[in-house]
């Protein structure tokens, strides 16, 4: 048995700004600390959703572009927040902000960076079985080619992070 083998050299945590994804980031930071992993934090501006709302004529073009800028700013803010969380525990992180179809962009990032493990928050709610095929968290699970960890639960992770 090779004791020097590190199965988690490169971790990516995908965040969407939800509390659940921030908890996933906390666990990712704890794992990076424990395994000496490189950690990348990823946010994707859901351009596809904005395009769908434009197509449904809920948004007008100028408004869609405006929201896209807002979401990009949100993404930078969330990435900065996780960066600070990691810094507070002495863990270095890299950040990445992409735009497009969420599950495809996550998959590209995983491939390009040769990620060993993708970490994400709880899967979103679905209104029906059919709906589950369109939920981004589920689509990420199906699309990426590396192991995926879905982080559930609350108290234990926050406690673990505080004690880190």
């Amino acid at each position: 048995m090779n004791k020097n083998l590190n199965p988690f050299e490169r971790l990516i945590v995908y965040i969407d700004g939800s509390e659940s994804s921030i908890r996933a980031a906390k666990l990712a930071i704890a794992m990076a600390n424990a395994f000496g992993s490189r950690l990348r934090v990823l946010y994707v501006v859901n351009e596809n959703l904005l395009n769908e709302l434009l197509k449904a004529r809920v948004f007008v073009q100028v408004e869609k572009m405006d929201y896209e800028r807002d979401l990009e700013e949100d993404g930078k803010r969330y990435l900065g927040y996780v960066e600070k969380l990691a810094e507070s525990k002495g863990v270095d992180v890299e950040t990445s902000l992409r735009k497009g179809i969420v599950h495809e962009e996550v998959s590209c990032e995983v491939d390009e960076w040769q990620c060993d493990l993708l970490i994400q928050g709880e899967l979103g709610e679905v209104l029906s079985l059919r709906d589950s095929f369109y939920e981004e968290g589920e689509r990420i699970l199906r699309k990426v080619k590396c192991p995926v960890m879905v982080v559930k639960g609350q108290g234990k992770i926050n406690k673990l992070f505080e004690e880190l």
Binding site: E52, L53, V58, L71
Partner: peptide, 12 residues
Amino acid sequence: SGPHVQAIAKIV
């Protein structure tokens, strides 16, 4: 804007 867009998408 994030929650705003998500809420509109949910209603749609």
